[in-house]
């Protein structure tokens, strides 16, 4: 098992290098430090000295990959790529435009993001599966058709609508919960209820459809027929057998998402004023702070790859048919 995990981790390295190169290409080659300086300093005052000064202050006054002026190994070391991009690998994200340490900000903002993302994820998963099983139980009936119609409708409405409608109904008109904000500890619950509910609801349409088709695929298999033949009730068949066997495909879709929960939700957090990583990213995009965006892109990729590896590991753990050497 350990060698398998190590092997998977080693495979992840080239992909991360690829991600690193893509972000480097985007932020330093497609759009050179000179361009950045010009757009940051404004169009009017772009003398060559000012650009040079800005680049020196940022540490951007180096060649991309190969520095001829330096001796020995520093030829490779003292370059933009190594200094600015490669350090992302040890999670050294550098400074934001306002001088704050990005790594410290990220650590601090992870908790609020998770406070929203984890409940949304768990409650959403349970509701989706419960609804889907219920509909599979009544498959072919009017209830089935009606739910599928509602599911398509839910899917077709923009997520922004749910947020705005939810805020207006529950906060503005009925005053059940505060419109937005965040507090530490248990006080945060009243701020969390609405975003979590909206998140769960917005995902309901696609979720029900996905799990329904998954269970329907399962229900035509032989073991279900056997279970029915030995006289089990439909409910026992569904919850005892179909759900258990359906867990494996569910696992693939679910485990990969778990690490990315850290990233938070961009829109949800900015609408509800939650100081998490999502709103951090949005603020950075609006302020055109390339350092933060670069860090978040890299972090997101790392977490996604971790999710992929976790998926594979959980597969080998739950499904004895999967061989470790694969």
């Amino acid at each position: 098992m350990l060698t398998y995990i190590i092997r998977r981790l080693v495979f992840a390295v080239p992909i991360l290098i690829g991600v690193n190169l893509i972000t480097f290409a985007l932020f330093f080659m497609v759009n050179t430090p000179d361009d950045m300086a010009r757009s940051q300093l404004g169009a009017k005052q772009t003398s060559a000295e000012m650009i040079a000064a800005w680049k020196q202050q940022k540490g951007y006054d180096k060649p991309l990959f190969y520095n001829e002026k330096q001796p020995g190994l520093a030829k490779f070391y003292d370059t933009l790529y190594v200094q600015e991009s490669l350090k992302l690998f040890w999670f050294d994200f550098g400074q934001a435009d306002d001088g704050r340490q990005i790594s410290a900000d990220i650590q601090q903002r992870m908790a609020p993001s998770l406070a929203i993302a984890i409940p949304t994820f768990v409650i959403g998963l349970v509701t989706n599966i419960a609804f889907a099983l219920l509909i599979v139980l009544f498959r072919g009936s009017v209830l089935d058709t009606a739910t599928m119609v509602v599911a398509v409708a839910i899917m077709s409405i923009s997520g922004l609508f749910y947020i705005i409608a939810g805020q207006v109904l529950f906060s503005k008109l009925w005053h059940w919960v505060p419109i937005s904000g965040y507090a530490e500890g248990w006080d945060s619950i009243k701020f969390m209820i609405l975003p979590v509910m909206i998140g769960v609801f917005a995902g309901l349409g696609a979720g029900i459809r996905w799990y329904r088709s998954l269970f329907l695929e399962e229900i035509h298999k032989d073991y279900v027929r056997t279970a029915r033949a030995k006289g089990l009730s439909e409910i026992k068949v569904l919850f005892g057998h179909v759900l258990q066997n359906g867990l494996l495909p569910i696992l693939t879709g679910v485990v990969v998402v778990i690490p990315t929960l850290f990233m938070g939700s961009l829109i949800m957090e900015s609408f509800f004023g939650i100081p998490g990583l999502g709103s951090y990213t949005i603020d950075a995009i609006n302020a055109q702070d390339f350092g933060i965006v670069k860090a978040m892109v890299f972090l997101g990729s790392v977490l996604y790859i971790v999710g992929l590896i976790l998926t594979d590991i959980s597969y080998t753990y739950f499904d004895p048919r999967v061989r470790l050497t694969a």
Binding site: L266, K294, S301
Partner: peptide, 10 residues
């Protein structure tokens, strides 16, 4: 492996 919205945003 790069999150879609972030790549687009970048």
């Amino acid at each position: 492996s790069i999150p879609g919205v972030l790549l687009i945003a970048a």
